[in-house]
Design a protein around this nucleic acid. Structure first.
Lengths: 197, 197, 197, 197
DNA sequence: TATGAATGAGGTTTCATTCAT
DNA sequence: CATGAATGAAACCTCATTCAT
C-alpha cells in the first residue's frame, strides 16, 4: 500500500556510522541519568555521561522532550519484544503475570517504564503517543482469559492501570523485593478467576 | 520566678489574624498549584495565585521544601481526621475500602496525596517524616480483619503500598471515574477473604 | 503648631523612658552584630539581638545608614572621653601611644572603630561626618611633641592615617596580640625623636 | 605510557581562543568593578561591564567566590613577578621599600590587593589559600637585612602586617599621594637600622 | 510607640537552547 | 558532524523599608 508520507515521520536518513553510535550512547546515558535523578535532570549531565558535548545531544534530539520520547520508544520496543516472546513461548495462563511482574521489576530500576505506561491510551506530555505496548498486553490478557486463568470481565485498560499503579508505587515508595511480591500477589489474586485456594 | 517570655522562643506564637489568613491562602494556593503542575512549579506562581508578594510566601515558609512539607502536614491532618471518623462510625468491614477509595479519589484531584503516602515508613524528601497516616490505616485494617472481611495475612505495609500505587496511577494515568472503580475493585477483590461471590 | 521644624534637627524630643531604653539596647546590639559580621549584617539580626521588633529599629533609625552613623557617634564619644582623661592624667610623652594602642586593641574587638577612623577628615559614606576624634588626637600629639617624644614634622593626619591602617590591619588580618605589639612598636619607633636606644 | 586523555579530566583544557578572551575580559571587568564598589558588587554588574551575558560569567567562574579567588590569583601573579624582578635587579637595601610602596600605591587603585594581603598566613574566605606573596616578601626582607638596611629583629609577618595595614588604610581612608608618602616614611623609619640621620 | 507582616527590587545560580569554531 | 562557549529567562531566596494592627 502506498499511502502518502505521513507528516510525522521522523526517521529516513541513513545516519553515518559514528553518528549512529553517538545516538545510541546518548540514549543509553539518558536512560540511566533520568532513571537516577528523574526527568528534571539536566541535559548537560546526560551529555557528560554519554561522553559527548552538549551540542551533540541537541543535534540528535532537538529538544529535551524529544530525548525523553526517544527513550520511551526505545524502551517500548524492548518491552513489546519481550511480550512477543512470552506470547509465543510462555504458559498461556501465567504469561501475563510474568510480563506484569517483569514490568514492575524493571520500574524499580528504571523510572522511565512508569512514564511509558502512564501514556498508554492517554494524551501525552512528551510530544508523541505510544500505543504498541497496550497491544502486547491485550494479547497476553486475551490468552490468559482463553485459558480461563483471568476473570473475563477484566479489560486491558484495567491491566494497564494496575501496571501503571504498581510501577509508580514500586518506584516512589522504594519498595523492596518482598513488598513488591506481596503487592503484586494481591493484585493477581484480584484478577484471577479462582480464589487462591 | 516567671520571667517574661525569653526573646528566643521560636515555636508557638499565635499569628496575627491577617497573617493567619495569608498563611491559609498561601497553603491553599500552593496545594492547587502543585496539584496542577507538580512540585517543580515555581514559588512565584504560588504567590501570584495567593495574591501576595513573593516575600510573603518566604516569610511563612522559608524554603520551598518547607512549603511542600506544610501542605502535606495539612493534608495529612484532614485525612487522619476522616479516618478517625470512619473508625468510630463506619461499617467495620468496609471502612477501610471506603477510606482507601476516598484517598484515591482525592489523589485524582491533588497530586500531593501521593507524595504523602509515598513517605509513610520511608526516608523523607521534604524535611520531616510523617507517620500518623500509617497508624490510621493500621487501625482500619485491624478492624476489617477482626470483622473477617480482609485476609489475615495482609499487612499495613501492603495496604500502604497498594494505596500509594493506586494514587500514583490515578494521578499520572489520568484515570476517569469508571477506571478508578474497576481498578480498585480488583485490588479489593485481592484483599478480601471471600471471593467476590 | 508653633515654629516649623527645621529640616536638619534630629534631637529635640524628650524620648519616653522606655523609648530611650530601646534606643540604647538597639545601639548596643547593632554594635556587637556589626562587629561580628560586618556592616552587611541584616537589620533583622540587630532587632533580634536587641530583643525588639524590626519596626522599632526603623522607628529609631529610619535607615540602616542612620544606624551605622549612630553607632559611630556613640563610639566616638567614648573614645574622646578616654582621650580627654589621658590628656589630663597621663604621661605627656606616652599618652598618645597609650591611646593609639587602645584604639587598635578595640578595633581587634570591634570592627566599627576602623570605619570611624576612616572617616576623620574625609568624605563620608554614612551620612554625617565626624571630626572630634581628630581633635583629641591632635591634642595628644601636640603634648607629646612638646615633651619632645615625637618628631616635630609629624602631623595629625599622619597619626590618623597610621591608626586607621593599624586598626584595619588588626581587624582584617586577624592579628594576634603579639603581632599587634610588634607592628605598633615599629610604627612608634618611626614616630619617635630618638632611636630605640 | 601515553594513553589518550581520559574524558573526565577537569583541569588543563586549553580554552578556545574566544573563550580565553572572554575570561580575560571578565576578570578585568571584575577587578575594576570590585575595586570600585567592593566585593559586594553584583555579578550582573561585572557581566555588564565585560559586555557578556550573566551566564557567561558563571560558566567561567561557577561561583562568585570563584571569581573573587581568580582575581586574587591573577593579581598575586603580577605582584610576585614584580617582586622577582626587584630581587634580581634592584638595590638590595631598598628593594623591599620599593616593593612595599608599589603595593600600597596599587591598593589605592585596586581594593583587591588588600584582601590578598590579608590572607597571607591566615584562614581564607575565598576558597583557596594564597601564600606565594609571603615568600616574595620574605626574600626581599632577607636581602635587606643582609645589607644591614633593616633591623634584624623584624620578621616577615611584621612586614606583611604593616603592608596589610597600609593598604587597607590607603584604600579606606582615601589617602592622597602626599599622605601615602608620609605614612610609609614613618613605617620605614621604624624598620630601618639607622635613625633617619 | 511597638509590633511584625507585607512588599518587591535585586542577587546568585541553573539550564535549555543557539551558534561560532 | 561534533564541539563547547554564549545566551538569557527563570528559579530560589534575602533584606531594607513600609504600614496595618
Amino acid at each position: 500500500m502506498t499511502h502518502p508520507r505521513s507528516p510525522a515521520d521522523p526517521e529516513r536518513r541513513p545516519l553515518r556510522a559514528d553518528a549512529q553510535r553517538n545516538r545510541a550512547r546518548i540514549l543509553a546515558a539518558a536512560e540511566s541519568v533520568f532513571a537516577e535523578k528523574g526527568p528534571s535532570a539536566s541535559t548537560e549531565g546526560v551529555a557528560a555521561r554519554a561522553g559527548v558535548a552538549i551540542g551533540t545531544v541537541f543535534r540528535h534530539f532537538p529538544t529535551k522532550n524529544d530525548l525523553l520520547t526517544a527513550i520511551m520508544k526505545n524502551l517500548q520496543q524492548r518491552l513489546t519484544d519481550q511480550a512477543d516472546t512470552l506470547i509465543a513461548d510462555g504458559d498461556p495462563a501465567t504469561a501475563l503475570f510474568t510480563f506484569f511482574t517483569s514490568l514492575v521489576e524493571r520500574a524499580a530500576a528504571t523510572r522511565t517504564v512508569v512514564d511509558l505506561l502512564a501514556q498508554t491510551g492517554t494524551e501525552v506530555r512528551p510530544d508523541e503517543p505510544i500505543q504498541d505496548l497496550e497491544q502486547a498486553l491485550r494479547a497476553l490478557l486475551f490468552q490468559a482469559q482463553r485459558a480461563d486463568a483471568i476473570r473475563p470481565d477484566i479489560d486491558v485498560t484495567d491491566v494497564v492501570a494496575l501496571a501503571t499503579a504498581a510501577c509508580h508505587g514500586a518506584l516512589s515508595g522504594g519498595w523492596d523485593e518482598d513488598l513488591r511480591h506481596r503487592t503484586l500477589a494481591i493484585m493477581f489474586a484480584g484478577m484471577r478467576t479462582t480464589p487462591d485456594a
